[in-house]
């Protein structure tokens, strides 16, 4: 039975994840205040992705799911990346890249 294979995650793990999320939130707010310019938006996206990763892996139990689930999520994320990426070949280069 795989129905109870991941009930060994304790309150402690969840609390630790929550603490990390809080720290990362503080970090992203502070980084935005310091005005890193272009690198600032990169940093905020990276921090957001770290937070999203924590939520997905622990709160949503993705870490304990089978490989199929991870593969499917990967397919969805790739689709999202392709959609936005290919559009930028248009909007990024239109009228000589205005």
């Amino acid at each position: 039975m795989n129905i109870n294979n991941n009930n060994n995650i304790g309150y402690k793990t969840y609390l630790a994840v929550w603490c990390c999320l809080m720290i990362l939130t503080a970090a992203t707010v502070m980084a935005a205040g310091m005005g890193f310019g272009r690198y600032g938006s990169l940093a905020s996206v990276l921090i957001a992705s770290a937070k999203a990763g924590l939520i997905l892996l622990f709160f949503m139990h993705l870490k304990y799911e089978t490989f199929v689930f991870k593969l499917m999520l990967l397919a969805a994320i790739l689709t999202m990346a392709v959609i936005i990426g290919l559009t930028f070949f248009d909007v990024g280069f239109r009228d000589g890249g205005r």
Binding site: L86, F89, D90, V91, G92, F93, R94, D95
Partner: peptide, 11 residues
């Protein structure tokens, strides 16, 4: 439609 040349070639 008037989208960029490079994307037309890629598509």
């Amino acid at each position: 439609s008037g989208m960029s040349d490079i994307s037309r070639v890629i598509f």
